[in-house]
Design a protein around this nucleic acid. Structure first.
Lengths: 202, 202
DNA sequence: TTCACTAACTAAACATCGTTCAGGGTATGG
DNA sequence: CCATACCCTGAACGATGTTTAGTTAGTGAA
């Protein structure tokens, strides 16, 4: 009976190999360079083989996007040790933008393209995105409870903070900020975040 | 000599027909349904013909994205009549999010996908994007001059406002807001904008 | 009118993509 | 030793963007 278990293990390893290879190509060359055939080439299997392990390409990207969220969750956790909630909130904002700008291709997969399998309400697992949002929301709640920021429904405040950091990161990644050169744009990040968080203070 | 002029006119009309058809397919069925062959089908020409009028597909999308910016500029202008600069700023924010959510496929082309031809620094014309940004920046300057909002470099404030509205719109369009159903999400828009603008007040 | 020239257009082809499928191995278990 | 799973491949299908050889039609001069 060890055999079916080994088969299961082999199967999981193969799935991981495929997802990791897809992620590798994604990070190195961008999302539109990720193709079934290129993944197959790298792992030295035929394209058809991949379909023995995944329904379709979307399925692979979905798995990759879950891993990306997991890595992002780790990044979020680095602020947990900061005692002051307002400082923690600001740190989270910086960590967010920093993650997005340091892992632009990953952030692309997570937030900029239509997320894989999102149409499939049955199959899409919201738990990771909920967990990342909860990190933010919990800090916001603490800030409100301690009267450190202007009070409002915690979801409203959380959305406002999230919109700001996501908006900033995505405008930069998509190069939608006019005139100023890249150097100048990245020098704007800190002042904008400072201004945004200052405004929230009670 | 009227002939070369007629040829020029015909050429421009054909270009417009192609761009309009592309835009039509984009709005009706989304950006990944826009293909050279489908445009050719609709206007009843062969695919090859399109290449007599445009370098490549990117060129067509680039032209369509310029038109989208022009429409967006018109929407922005509707707030010009509001006398109070702070009210005007808030109205602009609402117009922005409203435009994005009412024209999601257009907004996709303008801000969510990698903008066509953006790599080609030579060929990319920044003037429309600069103009749209200037509308925001001018209002922000006036607000600062009148001491209506917390003072800072006008570009910093403008970026913060822009990031908020763009972030909010793009998170909604990309369905990245967890748990809450669509109905609930759209009910969050106004409170979030109100909270964000309240925070800016001096 | 006739001839050459130019511009507009098409059909077919190429490479690439996601995906499917018939067939060939290979290990497993009786 | 054989049958039954399973793993894998190569070729194929339809779709994509793009290029090109070749046809058609309008223009301007002889």
């Amino acid at each position: 009976m060890g055999i079916t278990q080994r088969r299961d293990r082999d199967r999981q390893e193969m799935r991981k190999l495929i997802v990791d290879t897809a992620t590798q190509i994604l990070v190195e060359e961008g999302i539109d360079q990720v193709s079934i055939r290129r993944i197959a080439d790298r792992i030295e299997y035929s394209p058809g083989t991949i379909y023995l392990y995944f329904e379709d390409k979307d399925d692979i990207l979905y798995e990759a996007h879950l891993e990306a969220f997991s890595a992002f969750l780790d990044a979020e956790m680095t602020v947990a040790a900061i005692p002051d909630p307002l400082e923690r909130l600001q740190a989270l904002g910086r960590v967010y933008v920093n993650f997005a700008l340091s892992n632009q291709r990953m952030y692309d997969l997570m937030f900029l393209i239509p997320v894989p399998r999102i149409q499939n309400k049955e199959k899409y697992d919201w738990s990771v995105s909920i967990r990342t949002y909860q990190v933010l929301r919990t800090i916001v709640e603490e800030c409100i409870a301690q009267g450190r920021i202007k009070p409002n429904h915690p979801d409203v405040v959380s959305m406002q903070v999230w919109a700001t950091v996501h908006g900033l990161a995505s405008l930069i990644i998509r190069q939608r900020i006019p005139m100023v050169d890249k150097e100048l744009v990245s020098r704007m990040v800190d002042p904008v975040l400072n201004y945004a968080f200052d405004a929230l203070k009670a």
